[in-house]
Design a protein around this nucleic acid. Sequence first.
DNA 1: TAAATACATCAATAATTTTTGATGTTAGGA
DNA 2: TCCTAACATCAAAAATTATTGATGTATTTA
Lengths: 110, 110
Amino acid sequence: MEKEIPLLNNMNVSAIDFEKYEQKFKALADQQRLQIINILALKESVCVCDLTPIIDMPQSKLSYHLKILLEADLIKKEKRGTWNYYSLNIKELKDLLSNQLCCVFLPSCC
Amino acid sequence: MEKEIPLLNNMNVSAIDFEKYEQKFKALADQQRLQIINILALKESVCVCDLTPIIDMPQSKLSYHLKILLEADLIKKEKRGTWNYYSLNIKELKDLLSNQLCCVFLPSCC
DNA sequence: TAAATACATCAATAATTTTTGATGTTAGGA
DNA sequence: TCCTAACATCAAAAATTATTGATGTATTTA
């Protein structure tokens, strides 16, 4: 059962919301992950193998960071054969970030 | 000297920017701090002594979290006598968050 | 079918962040 | 001047996250 916090604003903000936002902001709260998002903003869809040479990171580490972004629903994953293609979850990012930030972390936003 | 990352988007995104955003998102990436922001969104300006009973937290812990928000420039502090009043840095939050999120974390945004 | 590529996952370690309780500082009141 | 309230800060411990290198699993390709 969801714990209800008294109406604190003109929106009904429940505890579960804070938890959700915490996860999303945590995913954003890392320079390396912000860089990944910034690269994805350019490339539409990128496989891990393309990402590894661009971003200077061991493969397992990259995998770890991609997973965090994925679990926060900020990016999407699509498997094609042996390759896993990642792309931005544009709707989610727009719901989260200001237009100004979209210029940095979303394609063709400005 | 600031490391310049090649132009990755229609904005000139330098390494230092990622660092700045990392700090701000880190500050947001915590349920307790989000709750503090949400309370400040209602109250305009609140002293720590008013906050302590509302938010169930030892004083030193509250002080710690306020400092993190302050250092990320998401809130402001004003000293009046013995009291320290905190309030949202509305401009900064608007620059960071979507309108949708402003409804939760900013006053009279929706 | 054997080897190689493209990943994910795991367990151990390292690093960072958070919590706690104690102490320090400053301003105001008795 | 002494006492108290309202904080900030500090150091130690606890908790969480991140990094690393190794291993596992598909899917291709030779």
